[in-house]
Amino acid sequence: MQNLLQFLRNNFHIFLFLVLQIVSLTALFRYNTYHQSIYFNTASSVNGSVLGWRNDVTSYFNLRAQNEALRKENITLRTAGTENFLFFSSDTFLFKNREGMVQFSYIPAKVINNNTAKPKNYFTINRGTDHGIKPGMGVIAPTGVVGVTTECSRHFSVAMSILNRDFKLTPKINKQVHYGNVNWNGNDPRYVQINRINDYYDILDGQEVATTSYAHYFPTDIPIGRVHKVEKAGDGKYLNIDVELSTDMSQLSTVYVIKNMYKSELDSLEQSVSHENR
């Protein structure tokens, strides 16, 4: 103890020197915008490349799962596919090479930032207005629905995740359309909820939940998940359903943004009707 005090006393000026230098540097980086910006730019570019390296390594770990998902998707695409077309009557010959017109096209993208821990989650993808993405387009992973784009810059877009309390979607359960909303209660990122479904429907565990094209974001029959648990509520008049998501939202990587060629046309048509009814 005596020695320590002696040591401190002998080297007091060195400690004072270091303290004063640290105070100066802190002030320099804290209060000077130029130094601050250089510091943050350097820090974020280092951060960015470190995160990039991490992604280079960790993306190998789920290659098998990714591969599996893509293979399944390929099979679906090979066997089905007609739901992407808007059919015209057979006497239309304007479009000679096909009997229909493409209504939905897919823009591949990568998720570069993702969140599942908050009550309102968003994720960022590496495609923006330069690639034809606008706010209000559906986003799907190979395994199912994951969100809707909300903000776009030139090269990036932010999408509202299905794990967001503001996210709403009309579901199809067991191939039947139900007038309820798929909505997340903010608790478990593996399950979303469908509340207040009429109880005279026969809904069982394990039935498929998929999209309808009602909101014009998604084509029909894109999987959302499977019924996990059915509960009666409101004196047994309603059913509250837990849906197990088919997509692991914490492992988002490859996604597709869905462009509906007729969205503006459909929206303006529906709006004109609602204006007339007012």
Binding site: H13, L16, F17, L20, Q21, V23, S24, L25, T26, A27, L28, F29, R30, Y31, N32
Partner: peptide, 26 residues
């Protein structure tokens, strides 16, 4: 060190660069 720090910080107050002159003086 204390004198240098005070002088540096006084100059910094006028040049709007807190810490820069203080660091250099010390």
């Amino acid at each position: 060190y204390l004198i240098a720090f005070v002088i540096g910080f006084t100059v910094d107050m006028f040049t709007y660069t807190p810490g820069l002159h203080a660091f250099t003086c010390v």
